[in-house]
Every structure is written in C-alpha cells, then in structure tokens.
C-alpha cells in the first residue's frame, strides 16, 4: 500500500475530532471520502499533509514513516475548497509556482507550463490574472499548479463544492482524465454522494471522527449510513 494511516487520533480543546483511524490507499488510486461538515475530514487531510500534528498514530508513505516530516518534504499537496490562486501572479506564473520554488530553469518551467495549460484546456488564458478567470478556470489552474510538481499524493478537500452543477460535472471529468494521465494517488473528500461514487476507485465514509473504508462499491451502496439507499428510495418513489 502506498499511503497508509495507522491509528491516527486528534483532539481539539477536549473534543475528539478524529477517533483511531486506519486505512490505506493503493498507488495510482483515488479514495473518495464522504463526510459532512465537522466530520473530521479536513483535520485528517491536514495531518496527512503535515499541516497538523496528530495526538497519536502514524502516517506511512511508500512504507516510510512520515508523521514527523515537514510538509515540504512529504510531496503531498493539499488542495482547498477555494482555488487559492496567488492574486499577484498570472495563470502561467501560478501553474509554474511549485517549479520556481524548486529552482527549475526558466525554459523548462515554460515548456512544462505550456504542456499543462494544454492538458487543462486553458489555451489563451496563460497571461491572464486570476480575477479575469471563471470559477471553473481557477480550479483548473489550481489543479495544474499542484500536478506540475508530480506530487506523491494529492489531497482534495471538496474542491468542486463552490462550482455550479454543470461546471462541477466538467471538472469531475477533467479530474478523472488528469488522474488517469498522471497516475495520481489521491484522497478526494466530498459531501456529495454522487461525486464520491464518480470520483473514487475506493470509497470511505467519515462521520464524527469515525472512519469506515468499504471493500467495494457494492458494500458502500448497501450500507444505510452512506445514504445511497435513501437516494435510491427517493427516485424509486417518483418512478412508481
């Protein structure tokens, strides 16, 4: 297993936000995590990214314990719900940001950014400033900025939550395409049931800090706690 979480726990101000959590993600797979607000999913992602310290437990990446590693050393990129583009940089500079941090040569950055812009279908937008882009375009730039550095793991915290349903659908397709092209290992957190099913190769639910990983899609759909049965019943009543 590529990313492995072992007995991870976290408490804030006397309240336990993450109960002992164990799971693993295979390399090149996307694990969809279904969870409502306050379920502890953001805390879990931040611990994996190295932005929060766990009270107990371990994080392993490619069999190496990385719990004490700094975020810079982990190669795990955490994407927020908002694209968080740097407002003083153009689309090109935003996408190439991670490469410039690594002091990659300017011609190399330029070539790789051009390729990424093409993959993201953002041709003609390279010199624009973030405030000149639509919501979907900004999210694409945020993806490009993360993917261009070839992260070991991508953590996505409800990245499409702020988008309208049509753009959301387009972005889901784009992400699936990019994930396949780049062989991305990712944790995709969402509160949207359909999105969880579309995006994930594996499925899990987090509720009030309790984690449950499903063996397959069938067991996820059968479990009444995921809400799939309620959704099916809802549509069934309209059919009858």
């Amino acid at each position: 297993m590529y990313l492995r979480i072992k007995q991870l726990e976290k408490t804030f101000g006397g309240q336990r936000v993450l109960h002992p959590t164990n799971f693993a993600v295979t390399q090149g797979q996307v694990l969809s995590v279904l969870g409502r607000s306050g379920s502890g999913k953001t805390t879990l992602l931040k611990i994996i990214a190295g932005l929060e310290e766990p009270d107990r437990g371990e994080v392993f990446l490619d069999n190496s314990p990385i719990t004490t590693w700094s975020p810079q050393k982990r190669g795990i990129v955490y994407l927020y719900q908002e694209p968080l583009l740097f407002p003083h940089l153009t689309v090109r500079e935003n996408i190439g940001f991670g490469l410039s941090l690594r002091r990659v040569s300017t011609p190399d950055i330029s070539r790789r950014v051009d390729e990424m812009i093409q993959h993201l279908e953002l041709e003609g937008q390279a010199e624009k400033m973030p405030d000149q882009l639509s919501g979907g375009q900004r999210q694409r730039v945020a993806f490009g900025r993360a993917l261009i550095i070839n992260p070991k793991v991508l953590l996505l915290d409800e990245p499409f939550a702020a988008l309208d349903s049509q753009t959301r659908g387009q972005m889901q397709q784009l992400f699936k395409k990019m994930a396949a092209r780049h062989g991305i290992t990712a944790l995709f957190v969402t509160h949207d049931l359909k999105e969880a099913l579309i995006m994930g190769d594996q499925l899990a639910v987090i509720r009030k800090g309790h984690w449950r990983l499903y063996e397959d899609r069938e067991s996820f759909m059968r479990d009444p706690e995921t809400g799939v049965q309620d959704e099916l019943a809802f549509w069934e009543q309209w059919r009858s």
């Binding site: 990214a49 190295g50 810079q72 982990r74 990129v77 927020y80 740097f86 991670g98 410039s100």
Partner: peptide, 26 residues
Amino acid sequence: AMEELVYTLGGNTWQAYRKVLLPTAR
C-alpha cells in the same frame, strides 16, 4: 491557507514570505 499551500507545494517560510505573503501584502 495560502501560506500552507506554499509549504505543501515545497516552499519554505522564507519563500512563502518572499513569493506570496509580502507581494500580496504590499
């Protein structure tokens, strides 16, 4: 969140200040 993003993208504190925090705070 922006600062943390710089860290997960591989930047250190100095780079976060120089490339993001100071320019946006100008």
